[in-house]
Design a protein around this nucleic acid. Sequence first.
RNA 1: GGGCGGUUAGCUCAGUUGGCUAGAGCGCGUCUUUGACGUAGACGAGGUCAUAGGUUCGAAUCCUAUACCGCCCACCA
Length: 853
Amino acid sequence: MKFSKAYEPNQYEPDIYALWEKSGAFKPNDTKKGPEYTIVMPPPNANGNLHIGHGLTIALEDILTRYHRLKGDDTWYIPGADHAGFETWVVYERYLESQGKTRFDYSRDELYEQVWNFVHEQRGNMELQLRSLGASCDWDSLTFTLDNKVVDTVYSTFKKMWDDGLVYRGEKLVNFCTKHQTAFADIEVTHKDEKGKLWRIAYPLEEPTDEVSELIVSTTRPETLFGDTAVAVNPKDKRYENLIGKKVKLPLTNRLIPIIADEHADMEYGTGVVKITPAHDPNDYEVGQRHNLPMITVIGFDGNMTPAAGDDYKGLTTEECRKKVLQDLIDQDLSRGEEEITHSVGHCYKCDTVIEPLLKEQWFVNLEPLAKRAIEALEAGKIKFHPANKKKVLINYLKNLRDWNISRQIPWGIPIPAFVNVDDPKDWIYDTRVNEETIKVNGKTYRRDNDTFDTWFSSGQWPYITTSDMPHHYPTSVMETGADLLFQWVGRMIMLGLYITDDIPFKDVYMHGMVLDEKGQKMSKSKGNVINPMEIVSQYGSDALRLGLIASRSAGVNQAFSTSKVIASRNLCNKLWNISRLIQQIVDENPTDDSTVELKNYGENWICHQINQANREVQKMLDHYRFAEAGDLLYDLIWNKYADWFLESQKLWKNTNLLKSTLEQILTMLHPFAPFVTETIWQNLSWTNGMLIVNEWPKTYKVDQERVANFEELIDIVTNIRSHFQSLPGANSYPIAFHDDELVYRNQLLIQHLTKAPCVPQIEGKTATGLRLAIQNHNNIYLQIPEDIHAKYKANLEDRILKLGREINTLQARLDNPRYVEKAPVELVEESRLALHDKQKLLDNMKAELELV
RNA sequence: GGGCGGUUAGCUCAGUUGGCUAGAGCGCGUCUUUGACGUAGACGAGGUCAUAGGUUCGAAUCCUAUACCGCCCACCA
């Protein structure tokens, strides 16, 4: 016997994975009869460990992959590894710091090489973890985001955009983290509502009149006043009509700045006068553009005040400067009060430093034409979303896109292939010789741009890059990823995919929600509530983790991790193991010569019907990404139907070939969800050949529906009898007598076996007596109980009569409603009639019985 | 300011074209050395589906409003 008493996942999982991998089962196979089925794995960080969210991602993607492989599709699950530009850089810079070094101690090329080595030392961990999660991906096609084919594609895309005028060099306000010394895209900035103050400051008029001597502006950032190049009022604002075009004195300086009229000034807000600081505020930047205002940078990239802030303030941090400015304003009697407000402030998502909008020359992508095509494709329904509402959300986002800053000032990433003329800062050329600091073209010297691409610029091209060796696998079948990446990644893949390939990158999008901790809190290292998937795997097994993660989880919804669901799943694996153990025993004792499957009794027809139904339902559910329901259904089939009823009944009549066949079907259907235990069982069974992973999806059985229905009735009878045994006082079983009941007569042995009570043989021509059971369609079954417990039974019976009466009333009322009979589907009405008829008959019996008792 | 969700059993959640007695896991109660499984078996208790209206023969499901909770986007001096 190869089956131990309990299933020990750790004992088998690594070997089983190695078996699959060696066999080549993970490779796509275009000799298969089915269509291409392709999933690109969202590439995990190459130098990191997998977190529980990866556990979910891999579970979902691998379920789909294995399901389609079993169905005979040319299935390709493409793994990846992400250089994770900024993320990894943050880790490496921290390491440098610990060594007492900074990035300025090395050249860009040196840093790149160092991080490369750093990443490659760690790489492999992540891949081992993917294996222990059971990912059945084609390792030979693993793509690292810095592989040549990625870089080449990214360069040619950049070039194409350059030629099409979609990418441009521009000096604009960018989101800058003064700690990490790099700019970010708008979407990468985390906004938080914070309490702050709104200060009112007097700006004296150059030429005071009798009525007005000063304008009062409101600001949350007094330290930027040195960068003011105007104050604005609304053109419709009668209060200031006469002042437009005049000048005010900028406090703490000797500068005069104009009073301009611009819609941006809100008449309702504060005094209706706003200071304009084009170099430090995105709104003001636009006002500045409209009015040709000068831009004065008073905060530097180091986060400190520049010399332009004046001798008294230069070199101060913004915070120090703010304090000093406020004090100085009070001293000069220019402060006009303050109020508490709540406003939204941008932060760096890694270090929480306040993001400064700073003027910087960067590469920008004009997304408007790309977004337009994406919106068209989405509105035409070319990509299906799960959950469906994400499509609307994405379209809404794409309609309001601004240009995308793709330059990052970090060394770890794909270098931007652009060079600038050392003598002419406007003269930029495209060139891929990024390993050279300067190049000569047409006698002119060009210096390379030291920036790298935003990683999402390359990730956004992932589907067509990874499938480039087998382009018939593009568009891919489904993009499965976290709901948080809708804009950041999914949107960009659609835009770039349409731009480069003229085709959508994937047909479906499935987005999962976040896995929260057991209390429903977001997991984070600082909170210390992170669940390590590898620990769950070693404790409960990989299959249990998968099943536990997908249980009760629906698309796009954040949900807590549940250990109890993992345990329930572990128990299912053990149950299946023991089912197999029992069947193997029976097979050993009852060998057969052939494998013909014949359905002999009620239970056999019934279980085949149940399996058929599960087969159809599971396919339907997986085709609609309803993982949790499919898992639930199989759980119910295996445990509550196969083990509890069918196997129990097979202890009486052993149909070896059917046991083998049904077990194979169940193993196959469960394999996508629990690949390890099912394959392990397959390998241990004496009669199976080859590997389950490449088995065929089961075909349905031919069943006799009448016998299926009969077995349902037997289940009713047995349950009813057991229920009586449980609720009646005294001994827990009594003899069962009956008359005129063909089904019971033929199944006496089974009923005895399942109820552990003897059936009294029927005597020709005599009616049975005792406590009559009230079972639909079976009115002549009696429990031979002693007189003294009839009373107890009577009370029970009265309860049930009341309940049944209520049900009958409901049905009757429904059928009495002429509009129901008229409008509801005929089958439904017919069903109600039948139900009413049966229930009424049952009620009559029960009432008759009550009189007897 | 705009947008999107959620509210169903003690707990965590399913429930997709509106239709049998609203389900699961865990938990709870009672019983059980049954040819595999105590990581088990049997039986059972437990829900006015947030609230108020509406549409419909019929609503957890569709519509409107309210309350509470949450998320995302946005250039709110």
